[in-house]
Design a protein around this nucleic acid. Structure first.
Length: 287
DNA sequence: AAGAGGCCCTGATAGC
DNA sequence: TGCTATCAGGGCCTCT
């Protein structure tokens, strides 16, 4: 479901609600997520106080009082909700599906606090929970991932040095979490549109000026998306639970067949597959 | 060794 | 209406 901006919105709203709260009870209804929820999950979490909710890339990191960290990845369809204990009333809806009511189906994990519970819902079960025991394991977990766009060692030179001599498309590079962490399929298209770069262009042909563009537009798009509360791309009818509005700012994503938004550009937005993922671009102004 | 493709899943929608 | 096919914001594994 979410890319970096959406996860950041979830992190922020979640942190406000659960920081300094103690976990009273945990119910795992289905441990078959992308990876199996460990059997001692309940034991590790119960009676722990939440010190902080952090984030790296698309991972939520929940810091627990006993030094363990809980890693949550939402995959494609994972959502987090806060509900009153027994009633179905939604306190906070941190899904980007805008559904004001949470269906009971696919509520795989429930974490109870004093006055409310956190519910993890995930139809496709591509998301996962992980317990990180110590600093060593923590560092190892993220070692392979590239820097975030806001990281100081993500800069035009870093981009240029990684892209040179590489044959794969620039779009696939933006999606490669080992190169840069946090960009997903929506923002990859948006970044390349703003950079005026064709997503099919081979990385080795991206020059230094274009690297600077990618650098600037990546930060711009992600920061703007965070500012707008992320993107909500399905079930737009029910506004009540909605948080994000960046979908209104999409220049190319889901705009196949529509006019390019660039003034004076006569192009029509196209949709083509790159490595089996839909890719939106203007063939006219993206070279 | 880089890079493409398949796969893990369910649900919504399009097309017949 | 009821079927089937296609697609969906991710990431990891395998094959070439």
């Amino acid at each position: 479901m979410p890319e970096l901006p959406e996860v950041e919105i979830v992190r922020h709203s979640l942190n406000k609600k659960i920081i300094q709260k103690t976990i009273k009870k945990v119910i795992v209804r289905n441990r078959n997520l992308r990876t199996k929820i460990p059997l001692n999950f309940k034991k590790i979490l119960e009676n722990q106080k939440i010190l902080n909710v952090g984030r790296f890339s698309k991972y939520l990191i929940i810091f627990l009082s006993g030094r363990n960290k809980l890693l949550i990845h939402l995959g494609m369809s994972g959502t987090i909700h806060l509900l009153e204990h027994h009633k179905k009333n939604l306190i906070t809806n941190m899904s980007f599906y805008n559904s004001p009511k949470l269906p009971d189906k696919h509520n795989h994990v429930e974490i109870f606090f004093d006055k409310f519970k956190l519910v993890y819902n995930d139809p496709r079960r591509f998301g996962f929970f992980e317990i990180i025991k110590d600093q060593d394991q923590f560092e190892k977990r993220f070692k392979k991932l590239g820097p975030e766009p806001f990281d100081s060692n993500f800069d035009p030179n870093y981009i240029y040095n990684n892209l040179k001599n590489k044959k794969k498309s620039v779009k696939n590079f933006l999606l490669d979490q080992n190169f840069i962490s946090g960009i997903g399929n929506i923002y990859a298209s948006e970044i390349l549109y703003l950079s005026r770069i064709n997503p099919f262009k081979e990385a080795r042909f991206i020059n230094k000026v274009e690297c600077k563009k990618i650098f600037e537009k990546t930060k711009l798009v992600l920061l703007n998306a965070i500012k707008k509360g992320g993107s909500s791309i399905r079930d737009f009818k029910n506004i009540s639970g909605s948080k994000g509005s960046f979908q209104k700012n999409f220049k190319v994503y889901q705009r196949e067949g529509l006019k390019c938004k660039r003034v004076d550009c006569k192009g029509i937005i196209q949709k083509k597959n790159i490595s089996n993922r839909s890719t939106f671009f203007c063939g006219f102004c993206q070279k």
